[in-house]
């Protein structure tokens, strides 16, 4: 790890102001992506701005028809919150599948979204549920926020403060984990919203999270796993590596989407 200067702001404003003098600073919250990357010297920020001591950014609450989660909420907080379990159980289940118990005690929802790892779980939930990602500057929809591998619309001094998830009628997330890393080899989030059905995929896309329009159209007509029988996802543009070929991942998308629809329908 290369040397850096450590900053510990007490507010989001102080954190943002640190970028005025140190444009090449990096934000750290749980640190469970950034610390490993810094150890490998793949990142070497000269300034590190620690958000983890800013108060009031880890709340979980219902606001009307939305579940609002603070950016510093840990994966374990989301996985075990009774508010989340009642409003969007699929989201609690998704959080419980991230990493391992110790990782879930540190990793944050804001950090996961800001990193936009193509195998991360939260991007699938955000895109499927039509979440609003709120920063210190503006509100962003997932379609504009996620911009490809490890790339988002966030500016250097822009800080995610919370994420607002519309509550769906039904939803489920099914993940096929890489046995070693526990990241998604493929993960499929299915949501039935008042505005329509959305099916999103993480882990497979060469550009990160994406929607499967053919599945959405079929499920819109009939929200049952049989509705997507015979529909195939093209392997073109999907990731292919030692863990699985693009064809294998394309096949998994169909299998997991059906399981997710069944799981969503099985919920009372």
């Amino acid at each position: 790890m290369y040397d850096f200067i450590y900053h510990r702001p007490g507010t989001v404003r102080q954190a943002a102001n640190l970028f005025a003098k140190n444009a090449d600073a990096k934000l750290i919250a749980g640190g469970h992506t950034l610390v490993p990357v810094m150890k490998q010297r793949l990142a070497a920020p000269p300034h590190l701005v620690d958000l983890s001591h800013i108060e009031g950014l880890d709340g979980i609450e219902l606001k009307g028809r939305n579940l609002v989660i603070g950016a510093l909420a840990k994966h374990n907080d989301v996985a075990t919150s009774s508010t989340v379990a009642e409003a969007i159980p699929a989201l609690a289940e998704l959080a419980a599948l991230i990493g391992d118990p110790a990782v879930r005690h540190k990793g944050t929802i804001g950090g996961s979204l800001a990193n936009n790892d193509p195998t991360a779980d939260y991007p699938a939930a955000c895109l499927a549920l039509g979440a609003t990602i709120v920063t210190n500057k503006r509100k962003l929809k997932p379609e504009e926020f996620f911009q490809g591998l490890f790339t988002t619309a966030l500016e250097a001094d822009e800080i995610i403060t919370k994420v607002s998830f519309p509550i769906p009628r039904k939803a489920a997330y099914v993940k096929f984990r890489n046995q070693a890393s526990r990241y998604a080899l493929v993960g499929v989030f299915v949501a039935r919203l008042p505005s329509g059905v959305r099916v999103t995929v993480t882990g497979a896309g060469g550009d990160g999270v994406f929607r499967v329009a053919a599945f959405e159209d079929a499920l819109q007509k009939r929200f049952a796993s049989k509705a997507i029988d015979g529909l195939a996802v093209s392997p073109d543009g999907l990731n292919s590596d030692l863990h699985g070929s693009a064809e294998y991942r394309a096949h998994l998308i169909g299998v997991l989407a059906k399981r997710a629809v069944d799981a969503a329908n099985a919920r009372a």
Partner: peptide, 12 residues
């Protein structure tokens, strides 16, 4: 709470 001390900076 259990954490992995190899992935936490002491300053944090």
């Amino acid at each position: 709470k259990a954490v992995k001390a190899c992935t936490v900076l002491a300053v944090m």
